[in-house]
Design a protein around this nucleic acid. Structure first.
Length: 277
DNA sequence: AGCCACTTTCCTGGTT
DNA sequence: GAACCAGGAAAGTGGC
């Protein structure tokens, strides 16, 4: 699993995470054979024993697999251990995360009562949301879908199955079904690194946060991370940047002249603004 | 099977 | 000269 796009955490917790993870200190994540930062992945053990970081991973996994907007889950409300998490009531979840709290509660409930040895397959199978392509899905529609997922899930009190997915998709406008690749697109991958720099520090930074201007600090490291995500070990910044340039025409990115490694989000890029509703 | 969106790969030529 | 930028052309990939 590639660790991209995490939630917001307090500076203290981020600092403690950095201390917990020596391999992180070079500014570019390294992975052991299981692909985990800490040796044991969150889905391999009972939620009761999750560290704060694993709680965080679980939240991120829900966002990633369901292609939910990062604003759906307030990460700062979940700077807690697995034990604490398991003691939280539905009301606690709702208070912490609003409507998304029900989704979180249901998923956690499922994990708590299922054999952890089965979680690996569950983890792979519970991808029940494909985003629209190229950032053309309006955020409002995305949130409506998010609500649809939550309501279906809340009724069942278990992860959505294929029929749930079908049912939910049937309520979507036709445009949502046009092209629905799994996983994020390049611009979303870049956006998520920017939104959660604590996960991959020092790779890309905002130059002008409000204008959506950003700069690559370690261009080849970003390319390698992108390649890792796409299972392509020969990815280079040269090739990644070609894909970036194709975004100009689609207005997902705007050209920034004269500044090396600097790009700017365009009007068709979603989810990068601080208070995007 | 074929279309489509989205890259990926390769390239030439230009700029910093 | 290395690193980056611009964009054409074509191939590859995966969903539908």
């Amino acid at each position: 699993m590639i660790l991209e796009g995490t939630g917001r955490m307090s500076l203290n917790s981020v600092t403690s995470l950095l201390h917990e993870q020596p391999s992180w200190t070079d500014g570019y994540p390294t992975f052991n054979a299981s692909g985990s930062f800490f040796g044991t992945q969150w889905h391999e053990i009972h939620p009761q024993y999750w560290t704060k970081y694993q709680v965080w991973e679980w939240l991120q996994h829900l966002l990633d697999t369901n292609q939910l907007d990062a604003t759906c889950i307030p990460f700062q409300e979940f700077d807690v251990s697995g034990e604490h998490l398991c003691n939280m009531s539905l009301q606690d979840f709702t208070r912490a995360a609003g409507t998304a709290g029900q989704l979180l509660y249901s998923n956690l409930h499922h994990l708590k009562w299922n054999d952890t040895s089965l979680m690996g397959s569950w983890k792979e199978d519970n991808y029940f949301y494909d985003s629209g392509y190229g950032g053309t899905v309006e955020l409002v529609e995305s949130k409506a879908y998010c609500r649809a997922q939550i309501s279906v899930n809340a009724v069942n009190h278990q992860p959505l199955d294929a029929s749930d997915i079908k049912r939910t998709q049937d309520h979507l406008p036709k445009s949502h079904k046009k092209h629905t690749p799994r996983g994020t697109h390049l611009w979303e991958f870049i956006r998520d690194i920017l939104l959660h720099p604590e996960k991959n520090p020092g790779l890309i930074k905002w130059e002008d946060r409000s204008e959506g201007v950003f700069r690559f600090l370690k261009s080849e490291a970003v390319a390698q991370l992108w390649g890792k995500k796409k299972n392509n070990s020969s990815m280079t910044y040269e090739k990644l940047s070609r894909a970036m340039r194709y975004y100009y025409k689609r207005e997902i990115l705007e050209r920034v002249d004269g500044r090396r490694l600097v790009y700017k989000f365009g009007k068709n890029a979603r989810g990068w603004r601080e208070n995007e509703n």
